[in-house]
Structure formats: C-alpha cells, structure tokens
Amino acid sequence: MNVIYPLAVPKGRRLCCEVCEAPAKRVCTACTVTYYCGPVHQRADWGSIHEKICQLLIPLRTAMPFYNSEEERQHGLQQLQQRQKHLIEFCYTVAQKYLFEGKHEDAVPAALHSLRFRMNVHGLNSVELVPAYLLLAEASLGLGRIVQAEEYLSQAQWTVLKSTDCSNATYSLLHRNLGLLYMAKENFEEARYHLANDVSEIWHKYLNDHYQVLSQARVQQIDLLGKQFVNDTGLADEAQEAEAIRILTSILSIREPTSDKAPRKTVLVLKTLAMLYYLMMDSLKAHEYAARALSLAQEHLSVEEQNVIQELLTLITTEEEQPITS
C-alpha cells in the first residue's frame, strides 16, 4: 500500500475525506488527488477500490490542459466523461462482488465511488443514482447500520418518485432493499409487502419474455412439442415448477385481501401465474388465473391493460379447444 503523508492544506481550501467527507489530513502520494481524514479510512478505501483505480483518478481530478481549439476542448471533455462512465460501472461491479461475498465493509468505498461518479455525469437528481444508493443501503444493512440504510433508501425512494424513467429492475431492487430494511426493523408485514413486490415483478418479467415468443409461435402455427414449451420456461424439473407456484401463490395470498388498494399489483401476480401454468401446459389452471386477472382488471384497470389479459385468456382458451400433443 502507498505511504500516506500528513497533508498541509492550503489556507482557505477545504479538502474532504474520500470515505466520510470529513476534513482531510492525508493524501495518497501515488495519485496526489485523493484525500483522507486518517489512516483507518485510507486503508479501507485502498483495500476496497483505490488500489484498482488510483492512477485512473489523476486525469479526472486535475485541471484540464490548454487546448488550441474548441473542437479539441470538446473532445477532451468527451474523453473525461467516458472515463467517468467506465469508472461508474467498474466501481459498481466491484461493490456488487463484495456484497455477493458477504464483505459489506469492503463494498462501501467502492459503492461511494460509483455514486460520486454518477453524480458528476448525471447530476444530483438523476434516477441513475438509485443503483448506487441501493448498494450502499444493502451494505449498511449487512453491517447492522439500520439508520444509515434507511437514509440511503429514502434518497433512492425520493429519486424514483421524481423520475418518469425508472426501469423495472430498479423498482425491484428498491422493493427488495425496503423488504430487508423492514425485516431488520422487525416490521414483518411491511417486509412481506415489499419482498412480494420484488419477487412478483421479477417472475412476471422473466415469464413474460418466454410467453411473448411462445404466443407468437402459436399464432403463426409453428409446430413445437409440448416438452419444448416447458423447457422454454427455464424450469427444468417439477421441483422448480412447484417452488415457483409456491412463491407466487404466497404472494397472491398477501395481495388479494387488499386488491382494491393496489389492483394492478394483484393483477400482475394473477397474470404471472396464468403465464406460468400456460407454459407448463396446464390450460385449466392457466385459464382460472387469467379469468381472475381479467375480472379484476375490468373493475380497476384501463381498457388497454384489460386487452393484454384478454389476449392471454383467448390464447389459453384456444389451447384448451385444440390441445397440442407431445
């Protein structure tokens, strides 16, 4: 590890610690552009991410050179932004790897770097900041820092609420972390609610991709064997099928009693179960859940959303009338 010398801060200039943003007292002598409040945070950052990106930070944190033309200056700015985008993904991936390995302390500095680079590139209010907030929340939960995790999740929620361009994957991660937070706070009802959101959205996206391909094949009258349809679900055996059904029906039991408050979420689970049974070649069960989804959609959802479920029900009904033999 590089030797870190005490820092003589020029008068009127405030330098902040890379990890905690407290006033800095030390500088990394390898890059000379990274500062720390003391040896503890310096070692933490070095072991987590700084050793891997030390030299990459130099062009990002030093003054841009003099350019002879505006074209050259714009090219230089583009290169700078590309470097930052690369570091966003690299630091995020490193932090994720630490979390998968259960190294929550090591994940924090790497996730902080990803967050700061995201702020530099996308601004302070962009939904692009949310994945980094969620990594930091997950790491904080793993370290038992409930208040800190709640702060990161509040930032993530607020950013998502203000955004009109948030992916399903981001929503899913947000619900998962909120579920884990409420579990840590022993509020199990809220935990179940958010974890159900996470799981049902993941299953719906996964099965919907397979359903779209398969339904097009049926409409085009492509002759595929029933066994091939089962394999297309990605559920290789009956145990996996049973587990999927168990999870989704458990989520449905949470959703249905309050379906008038959040009908779209209940319809989502019913539709997901219908697609799952359809892909498993169980037309009777598929028809049952699709019909329930349509009935609820007709009460609460738009005509466009009703039509999507009606198409699924029509396809299932056709299969009941003209079963495919394996």
Score class of each variant (00 low, 15 high):
Asn2Tyr: 12
Val3Ala: 09
Pro6Gly: 11
Pro6Glu: 11
Val9Cys: 05
Gly12Ala: 04
Arg13Cys: 00
Arg14Phe: 05
Cys17Ile: 15
Ala22Thr: 15
Pro23Lys: 11
Arg26His: 15
Val27Ser: 10
Cys28Asp: 15
Cys28Lys: 10
Thr29Asn: 12
Ala30Pro: 01
Thr34Ser: 14
Ala44Asn: 14
Asp45Phe: 14
Ser48Asp: 07
His50Val: 09
Glu51Ser: 13
Ile58Gly: 09
Pro59Gln: 04
Arg61Ser: 07
Arg61Met: 11
Thr62Asn: 06
Ser69Lys: 06
Arg73Ser: 05
Gln78Leu: 06
Gln78Gly: 00
Gln78Pro: 00
His86Gly: 13
Glu89Ile: 07
Phe90Asp: 08
Val94Thr: 13
Ala95Val: 04
Gln96Ser: 15
Tyr98Ile: 03
Phe100Thr: 14
Lys103Thr: 06
Val108Ala: 10
Ala110Pro: 02
Leu115Ser: 09
Phe117Leu: 02
Met119Pro: 00
Val121Phe: 01
His122Thr: 01
Asn125Gly: 05
Asn125Glu: 08
Val130Ala: 09
Ala132Glu: 05
Leu134Val: 11
Leu134Lys: 03
Glu138Phe: 09
Ile146His: 03
Ile146Lys: 08
Val147Pro: 00
Gln148Arg: 04
Ala149Arg: 06
Ala149Asp: 06
Ser154Thr: 01
Thr159Trp: 01
Leu161His: 11
Leu161Gly: 04
Ser163Gln: 08
Thr164Glu: 08
Thr164Met: 05
Thr164Trp: 11
Asp165Phe: 07
Ser167Ile: 03
Ala169Val: 12
Thr170Gly: 02
Ser172Val: 07
His175Lys: 09
Leu178Gln: 12
Leu181Thr: 03
Ala184Phe: 08
Ala184Gln: 08
Ala184Val: 10
Lys185Val: 08
Glu190Gln: 13
His194Asn: 14
Leu195Asn: 10
Val199Met: 14
Ser200Lys: 13
Ser200Leu: 11
Glu201Arg: 14
Ile202Ser: 15
Ile202His: 14
Trp203Tyr: 13
Lys205Trp: 10
Leu207Gly: 15
Tyr211Val: 03
Ser215Leu: 02
Gln216Gly: 09
Ala217His: 00
Arg218Val: 08
Gln221His: 03
Asn231Phe: 12
Asp237Gln: 13
Glu241Phe: 14
Ile247Ala: 12
Leu248Trp: 11
Ile254Trp: 13
Arg255Asp: 06
Arg255Ile: 01
Ser259Asp: 10
Ala262Met: 10
Ala262Arg: 12
Arg264Ala: 15
Val267Phe: 07
Val267Trp: 06
Val267Ala: 07
Val267Asp: 02
Leu268Ile: 04
Leu270Arg: 05
Lys271Trp: 05
Ala274Ser: 06
Asp282Tyr: 06
Ala286Glu: 04
Glu288Thr: 07
Ala293Leu: 00
Leu294Val: 01
Leu301Thr: 03
Glu304His: 05
Ile309Tyr: 00
Leu315Ser: 13
Leu315Asn: 06
Glu320Pro: 04
Glu321Asn: 15
Thr325Asn: 07
